[in-house]
Lab assay of single mutants.
Amino acid sequence: SLEELLKLARHALRHGEEIHVLDRVITDEHEIKRLIEELERLI
């Protein structure tokens, strides 16, 4: 769900981890922040 993805993204950002989204691995902090902003808009 989007909520789950948002939780994962926030966790990854906090802990400096990578996040796997739709067969992509996002490691860049700015990309993760952008993902979080997009998800928050959708929810």
Rank of each mutant, 00 (worst) to 15 (best):
A12E: 02
L35S: 00
D23V: 02
H15M: 12
E4S: 08
D28G: 15
E18R: 08
E3N: 07
K33H: 09
H11I: 09
I32T: 02
V21W: 14
K7Q: 12
I36Y: 01
I43L: 11
L13S: 07
E38C: 06
E38I: 15
E37V: 14
R24T: 07
K7F: 08
L13E: 06
E37S: 12
E17K: 13
L2K: 04
H15W: 11
L8H: 09
T27M: 08
I36S: 00
R24M: 10
E3P: 02
V25D: 05
I19Q: 01
L5K: 04
A9K: 00
I19L: 15
I43M: 06
H11D: 14
D28K: 11
H15E: 11
R14H: 15
V21A: 09
L22M: 13
H30P: 07
I26L: 11
L39P: 00
S1W: 12
R10T: 06
E31I: 07
G16I: 04
V21F: 14
L39R: 00
D28F: 06
E40V: 08
L39Y: 04
D28T: 13
L2V: 06
E38T: 15
E29I: 14
E37M: 14
R34G: 10
E29H: 13
I32N: 00
R41E: 07
K7T: 07
L13P: 01
S1Y: 14
L6V: 05
L35R: 03
I32H: 01
R34M: 14
R14V: 15
R14S: 15
T27H: 10
R14C: 05
R34T: 13
R41P: 01
L13I: 12
A12K: 04
R14L: 15
R41N: 08
A9E: 00
A9S: 03
E40I: 09
R34L: 15
A12I: 03
R34C: 05
E31Q: 10
L22S: 12
L39D: 00
R41H: 09
K7R: 13
L8R: 14
I43H: 03
I36F: 02
V25Y: 08
I19A: 04
L2W: 12
V21P: 01
I32W: 02
E38D: 12
S1R: 11
I32S: 01
I26Y: 15
V25A: 06
T27K: 15
L2I: 10
D23W: 01
G16R: 09
I26R: 01
H15K: 09
H20T: 13
I19K: 01
E29F: 13
L42S: 06
D23L: 03
E40Y: 04
E31L: 08
H20S: 08
A9T: 03
I26G: 02
L2R: 05
V21N: 04
R10V: 08
R14A: 15
L2A: 05
I32V: 06
A12M: 03
R41Q: 10
L5I: 08
E29A: 14
S1H: 12
I32M: 07
R14I: 15
E37L: 13
L22V: 10
K33E: 10
L35E: 01
E38R: 13
L22P: 06
R24V: 09
E29C: 03
L35H: 04
T27Y: 09
A12H: 03
I19D: 01
L5Y: 06
I36G: 00
H20K: 14
L6M: 04
D28R: 07
V25M: 08
I19W: 05
L42H: 05
L39M: 04
E18N: 10
R10D: 12
I32L: 12
L6F: 01
K33Y: 09
E4D: 12
E29D: 08
E38V: 15
R10S: 07
L42F: 06
L5H: 02
L22R: 14
E18L: 07
L13Y: 05
L13A: 09
E31N: 06
L5T: 04
E40W: 04
L22F: 12
E38Q: 15
E37R: 13
R14E: 15
K33C: 04
A12G: 06
L8I: 10
E40F: 03
I26W: 11
L13H: 06
R41I: 10
I43K: 02
E37W: 12
V21T: 06
K7C: 05
I43D: 01
L22W: 10
I19V: 13
L42I: 10
L8S: 08
E3Y: 06
I36H: 00
E37N: 12
S1G: 10
R10P: 00
H20C: 02
D23I: 02
K7P: 00
E17Y: 12
E4T: 10
R41Y: 10
E40K: 06
H20G: 05
H30N: 15
E3F: 05
A9I: 12
L39A: 02
R34F: 09
E17M: 14
E17N: 11
V25G: 03
E31M: 09
L22E: 12
G16W: 04
S1F: 14
G16A: 07
L6T: 01
L6S: 01
L13M: 07
I36R: 00
S1I: 12
H20M: 12
R41M: 10
L42V: 07
D28W: 04
R34I: 13
S1M: 14
H20F: 08
E40G: 03
I19R: 01
H30Q: 13
T27L: 06
D23A: 04
S1E: 14
R34K: 15
L6I: 07
A9V: 09
L5A: 05
L39V: 07
L8C: 03
H15Q: 09
A12P: 00
R14M: 15
R24C: 03
I26N: 01
R24N: 07
L5V: 05
L42E: 06
I43N: 02
V25S: 07
L2E: 03
D23C: 03
I26D: 01
E4A: 10
T27F: 10
H20W: 06
D23F: 01
I26C: 03
E18A: 14
L39W: 06
V25T: 10
G16D: 04
H15R: 07
E3I: 10
